[in-house]
Amino acid sequence: MNVCGLRLSARLRAHQVPLRRFSTAAPKDRKPFFALRLTFATVAHVLLWGTAGVVLTNYFLPISGPLLKDPLPIRGSPEEKKTIEELEASASKLPIVKALRADPEYKEHRPWTGIPEEERQHRYTPGVLQGAEKIGYNKVWVKRDGSTVGVLSLGRGICGFPGVVHGGVLATIVDEALGRTAMHVLPTRNAVTARLSINYRRPVHAHLYPKSSGFVILRTWVIEHTDRKGVAKATIEDEFGNILMEAEGIFVVPRGWSLAEMPKGI
């Protein structure tokens, strides 16, 4: 064999296609196994995410059912009076209330008692927002230096998101508490809000929420003042001392205005 023949033979061997081995046995039917795996995976996903949904719903929206279905008690009804009595009894057992009542530096009073009942009914905070499922309990302890500690019960009637007290209602409550504190250091004992800044740090839960009785502690104190301006700060805390909200307000007596002095007990 010459050289050309050897080269041609080598090229043919290099380009040979490998033989495939074929079997005459019937192929395995994988469809039943695939369908079984698919069914198992579907059932597992349904159970997993269904359980997670139920758990998360019960954790974050535990009172969404009662909140949306059960009507609020009628103002002045026996049901509401009973709830308020229960709130009063529960508040008296709070460590913060016991400590404040035992401290001679503080004087206890209920806000808005200086305004006649028939007039309170036509005001927003002492009238519209009052009730067993709104502001059901509201007591303030005033210290000799003018700072205050308030204890309030906030119900489902003032919620925005189910179980969470509306931020606008909280702003109103804090605004009035700050203004009340600032007024006590102003000669006119009256002022208007010039600026209110709020930092919402955590949700404030209503008193039907399983992890909260709905009692919050509202602290206020004056940081500076003149004859016509008072600056005060406030915090809202839960029973465990966690800060839920911070605020600062500036209250002024506008020049040229003649503001009537607020009655005692505001």
Rank of each mutant, 00 (worst) to 15 (best):
Y209D: 13
K211C: 12
L186N: 02
S197W: 03
V204E: 05
R189T: 07
A194D: 05
L218D: 10
P210V: 09
H184V: 09
H205E: 13
L186G: 02
I198D: 03
A206F: 08
L218Q: 15
H184R: 14
A194E: 06
T220N: 10
R195Q: 10
S213T: 12
G214E: 02
N199M: 10
L218S: 15
T193E: 00
I217D: 02
A182Y: 00
P187V: 05
R189D: 04
H207S: 13
R202C: 08
I223Q: 13
L186F: 01
A182K: 01
H205L: 15
Y200D: 08
L208P: 11
V216E: 05
V216D: 07
L218R: 14
E224H: 10
M183P: 05
K211S: 14
L218A: 14
P203E: 08
L186Y: 00
V204W: 04
F215C: 04
D227M: 11
N199C: 11
I217W: 01
H205A: 14
F215G: 05
N190D: 04
H225Q: 13
A206M: 06
H225W: 11
F215P: 04
T220W: 06
N199T: 11
T188G: 04
A191H: 02
L186K: 00
I198A: 03
E224A: 12
R201A: 13
R195T: 09
Y209E: 12
I223L: 08
R195K: 10
T188M: 05
A182H: 01
M183C: 15
T220E: 08
A194Q: 08
H184D: 13
D227K: 15
V192F: 01
A206L: 06
R202H: 11
T220M: 08
H225C: 11
Y200E: 08
T193N: 01
V216Y: 07
S197M: 08
I217S: 00
Y200V: 10
V192C: 03
A191Y: 01
R202S: 09
I217M: 03
Y200W: 12
S212K: 09
V216C: 06
S197G: 07
W221D: 09
G214F: 05
N199E: 11
S213I: 06
S213P: 08
T193S: 01
